[in-house]
C-alpha cells in the first residue's frame, strides 16, 4: 500500500506539474492558425522553443513511468480512478499557481473526488 501511494504521488505531481508548465508554454506559443501539417509543424517547433515545455516534458515522462509501474501492480480499475486525485492537486495548482478563481462548487467537487478515490481504493 505504501509503495502504491508513493508512486501514485509521483504520477500525480509529475502529471499536474507537467500540465501546468505546458499550459504556460502553450499560452505563450498561441494556437496554430489551421490544422494543416505545415502549420502544425510550425506550431510544434514554436512549442519546442519554449522553456516551459522543457520543464513540463520531463515531469510528464516521470509521470508516465510511474503509471506503467502502477499498472504492473494493480488493476486498471484502481489505478486510473485513483489518478483522478490529480484534479484535487490541479485545482490547488489552478488557484495558487495560475491564480484562477475557485468556487465553492469546485471545492465540493474536490471533496467528492477524494471520497470517491477512498472508496475505489477500498476495493
Amino acid at each position: 500500500m505504501t509503495r502504491f501511494i508513493v508512486v501514485l504521488a509521483l504520477l500525480i505531481f509529475g502529471s499536474t506539474g507537467g500540465e501546468i508548465a505546458i499550459t504556460y508554454g502553450m499560452k505563450a506559443t498561441g494556437e496554430p492558425e489551421r490544422l494543416r501539417p505545415k502549420e502544425l509543424l510550425q506550431f510544434l517547433a514554436r512549442a519546442l522553443c519554449n522553456a516551459w515545455f522543457w520543464v513540463g516534458a520531463p515531469l510528464m515522462a516521470l509521470a508516465f513511468y510511474a503509471l506503467l509501474v502502477l499498472l504492473s501492480w494493480e488493476p486498471i480499475s484502481l489505478v486510473i480512478p485513483a489518478s483522478a486525485l490529480s484534479y484535487v492537486v490541479g485545482t490547488l495548482g489552478a488557484k495558487y499557481i495560475l491564480g484562477e478563481q475557485v468556487s465553492t462548487a469546485r471545492w465540493a467537487g474536490v471533496v467528492l473526488v477524494c471520497l470517491g478515490v477512498a472508496l475505489v481504493a477500498k476495493g
Partner: peptide, 20 residues
C-alpha cells in the same frame, strides 16, 4: 463499492469544472 467510488469521482470531476 468501487463503482460508487467511480461515480463520486465523475460527479466530483464535473463539479471541479463548474466555473469557466
Amino acid at each position: 463499492r468501487r463503482w460508487i467510488g467511480v461515480v463520486l469521482i465523475c460527479v466530483g470531476v464535473l463539479l471541479v469544472g463548474q466555473l469557466n
